[in-house]
Computed example of a mutant assay.
Amino acid sequence: MKKLTTILLAACLLGTAGCSADPSAGSGNAAPKKITVAFLPNEQSTGLSKTNEMLVAEIQNALGENVKVEGIVCDDYSVVSEAILTGTAQIAWESGATFAAAHRADDAVIPLFTYGEDADGDGKGDLDHAVYKAYIATDIKNKADFEGKSRDEMFEQLLGKSFAFVSATSTSGRLVPTTSLYRVFGPDGLKKVTEKAQIFEKTAREGGLFSEVQFGGNHPGSVQLIISDKVYAGAFCCQYGDEYQDQLYIIDTIDVPNGPLWVNSDYINADQQKALINHFVNLTPENAVENFFDAENGFFYETDNPALNRFVQQPADFYDFLFEMYKDEG
């Protein structure tokens, strides 16, 4: 088993839980008395969002009354990963890339399920639809720089310009665009860079691709950097650019696997894993907590029709896409 030798756990913004690992959480096959779920901050407050509260409630329903389930809010993606690796939290939902990074550090960290649209109408999610869109875009005023060009030629147009990523550990906001750029400008492409760090950590003066690299902190922040002319281009995902469609020109679009619910199996035993999977894959608008499938405020509110979404048990190789992306990052 791969283990981190040293982990410095950053501060968490806590609701009711502390940052130290709970000794009652147990390990191995022992059933913990308390389970903590790690989340990222929401945009409205420092506490759990309504949708995160719903997820905690469903996890509680899945595991029963013999265990107490609560959520904590962590500063960023890396803190979520460290919380799971150290046992401070035992379950996480945030980010496929964060899961992939944690799994690479310790293979006791495993995915249980993700979600997909019930495109076949059979009451089950569909892994063919268990994806979301990652974008690279620029301000619409730069449209003429890209029209009529191939994808590689459009990427070349970005050289020497400023660029925004979401955060260092974001799947669609850093890992995916970095890999796309690396495949064009790396050793197997135009040989402009020899490592991915030159794309998101170094400027052109330091051997990188861009004149300046900024991080938006979240997807809306990255979009704002683009439309406010703080950067020439940048990355973001999902619906965060929808209200600015008239101001954005999309350069590239990639399908990214939806993030899983993932656990540290040293703390969540096999029976609990099975209980979680069985509960969530059978979740419907009729048996879920109130508003879970609500179109405006529910867990799937970002999708066109929340009622079509279903949780799907996670095949082991579904995140090979992300593991492959990490190979060149050390």
Rank of each mutant, 00 (worst) to 15 (best):
T5Q: 14
T6Q: 09
T6K: 12
I7F: 03
C12A: 02
L13P: 01
D22C: 08
S24E: 15
K34M: 06
V37P: 13
L40F: 11
P41S: 07
L48N: 03
K50Q: 05
M54W: 05
L55S: 05
V56C: 06
A57L: 02
E58M: 06
E58A: 01
E65I: 06
N66Q: 13
G71W: 14
I72S: 08
V73K: 03
S78R: 12
S81F: 03
S81N: 07
A83P: 01
A83R: 03
T86E: 13
T88V: 09
A89R: 12
A89E: 15
Q90R: 09
Q90L: 08
E94D: 06
A97H: 07
H103I: 05
P111T: 07
Y115N: 07
D120S: 10
G121Y: 15
G125L: 09
D126M: 08
A134E: 10
Y135F: 10
Y135D: 00
A144Y: 08
K149F: 00
K149A: 13
R151E: 09
L158F: 00
K161T: 10
T171K: 07
S172P: 13
G173L: 09
T178Y: 12
T179N: 08
S180Y: 02
R183Y: 05
P187D: 14
K192W: 14
K196F: 11
K196Q: 15
K196I: 12
I199E: 11
K202Y: 01
S211I: 12
G217Q: 02
P220E: 13
P220G: 07
G221F: 00
G221L: 01
V223E: 11
V231N: 04
Y232V: 01
A233R: 07
C238N: 15
Y244R: 06
Q245Y: 12
Q245G: 02
Y249M: 06
I251P: 00
D252W: 01
V263E: 02
N269Q: 13
Q272T: 08
A275N: 10
A275W: 11
L276I: 14
N278W: 10
V281C: 08
N282E: 05
T284D: 05
A288C: 06
E290P: 00
E290L: 03
E290W: 02
A295Q: 05
F300G: 10
F300A: 06
T303G: 05
D304C: 03
P306V: 03
L308K: 13
L308A: 09
N309H: 09
Q313T: 09
P315E: 05
D317V: 04
L322F: 02
F323C: 08
